[in-house]
Amino acid sequence: MEYRTLGKSGLKVSEIGFGAWAIGGDAWGEVDDVQSIKAMNHAFEMGINFFDTADVYGDGRSEKLVAQLIKGKRDQVIISTKGGLLGHTRKPEPIYDKPEKVIKAFEDSLTRLGVDYIDVYFCHIWWHVEEETLAFLEAFERLKQEGKVRAVGVSTDNFDYLKTFNRNHSIDVLQVEYSILNRAAEKEILPYCQQENIGVVVRGPLQKGLLTGKFTKEMQFAGNDVRQHWERKWFEEQVDKVEMLKQFKREGRTLGQLALQFVLSHPAISTAIPGAKTDKQVEENALASIRPLLTNEESDFIQQHFFL
């Protein structure tokens, strides 16, 4: 496993992390808690030290499971969690409009995680409401002063919101969606993060599983799986795009690993956090951390056929 510096935070993170949304059990189908803990421990054994969760994932279930991982190895694990969506209507109206409300959400995460500090804390609200932005920024400052958090940031794909949140160069880390199928962050966000020395955590590097190459146009998603809400025409178009990449599959590297290597090839990226629920998924993700990341032919093909 290779490690990178998480921007101005100075934290050294594994370039492949563990995204713990799926193990919350509220958006990706059925999960087994014992298997989830086993998968996280396997990730740790493979050199993954960055684990990302959120209070809203399974209404706290994900954070409680991450707590099981941390026991006995807190100083070897970098924990990232997010606040602001739990209990929110997700409409542009202020809910977390006072720093005390943000701090309460943070303290609740501390309790579920069973720790006395969090390495990286994100605002999980991705749209701009000034009262909430100011509340988070003030809460961040207080929590840093108290030594309860080491780095702070925002999870958003909106460049204007990122700049608004970073108005006083006040954030250390950004969490953003970026993949072969969604290269929008390359336009403005990633260059800005390089300029500001903001660490970049990439969510969705496998585009919710599409870039594993395991989906067909006939694939159906059911239950609480968030992918059942995909627009069908869009989904079928993405399956066709992924089919083009299969020419680059080779012995010892899966299509999903190619997708992760693409993300890691950008110099702004600190870590990618694909989700995983099983040891097998963990292992496949972790083994993407090999060199070289991409050949010139692979890189050129992606640049030419997968547009910004």
Rank of each mutant, 00 (worst) to 15 (best):
A185T: 12
E188R: 14
Q195V: 00
I198P: 11
P205H: 02
H169W: 01
Y192R: 01
V173Q: 06
E186N: 08
L206C: 04
K187Y: 05
I171Y: 01
E177L: 12
V200Q: 11
I198G: 12
Q175C: 05
R203H: 09
Q194I: 15
L190F: 13
E177T: 11
N182F: 01
L181E: 04
N197G: 05
Q195Y: 08
G204I: 06
P205V: 06
R183I: 08
L174K: 03
D172H: 05
A185D: 15
Q195H: 06
V201N: 00
E186L: 09
N182H: 15
R203I: 10
S170F: 08
E196R: 11
L206P: 00
I189K: 12
L181W: 05
C193E: 03
Q195A: 09
H169F: 14
Q194R: 07
P191A: 04
L174Q: 07
P205E: 12
L174I: 08
K187L: 03
Q195L: 06
I189D: 08
L174F: 12
V200L: 05
H169P: 00
L190I: 11
N182W: 14
L206S: 10
I198W: 10
N197V: 04
R203L: 07
K187V: 12
L181I: 10
E196W: 12
N182S: 15
V201R: 07
C193G: 13
Y192C: 05
Q195C: 02
G199P: 11
E188L: 15
L174Y: 03
V202G: 01
L190T: 13
V176F: 03
I171K: 09
R183H: 15
I189C: 10
P191I: 04
H169G: 15
V202C: 07
I189G: 02
N182I: 10
